[in-house]
Amino acid sequence: MALHAAIKGKLISVIGDEDTCVGFLLGGVGEINKNRHPNFLVVDKSTAVSEVEECFKRFMKRDDIDIILINQNIAEMIRHVIDGHTSPIPAVLEIPSKDHPYDASKDSILRRAKGMFNPDELM
């Protein structure tokens, strides 16, 4: 798998609403590998939080995935898992969606960085 990934570049996976997934798959990031595992998950009203969490963890374990794109409102559902991910690979990027504009105050990385500028921390 590692050799396979090294030859053809790594994947961008998407966890998002219908339009986000359709759009980025139109952009060419979608893949279904030989084990029949897709690199995307369409989240709708009927998708359980546990399903999203499980999918996110599965993407984190795959060594052919370099970037995980997740809609910010979906990231909110599994915030505890995203906060616990500190490794630079795969990079987790929170992106806005049609119904939820980007809110920097909710972004895990920016919140972590902002936390360092507390007056107590700066001393």
């Binding site: 994947l11 961008i12 997934c21 990031v29 279904i32 897709p38």
Partner: peptide, 22 residues
């Protein structure tokens, strides 16, 4: 006609991503 129904599923033949990261 433009929805997740048209996206490939686990039962679709395998295909590679056109856009990757290096």
């Amino acid at each position: 006609s433009v929805s997740s129904l048209q996206l490939p599923t686990e039962n679709s033949p395998d295909f590679d991503a056109v856009t990757t990261v290096v």
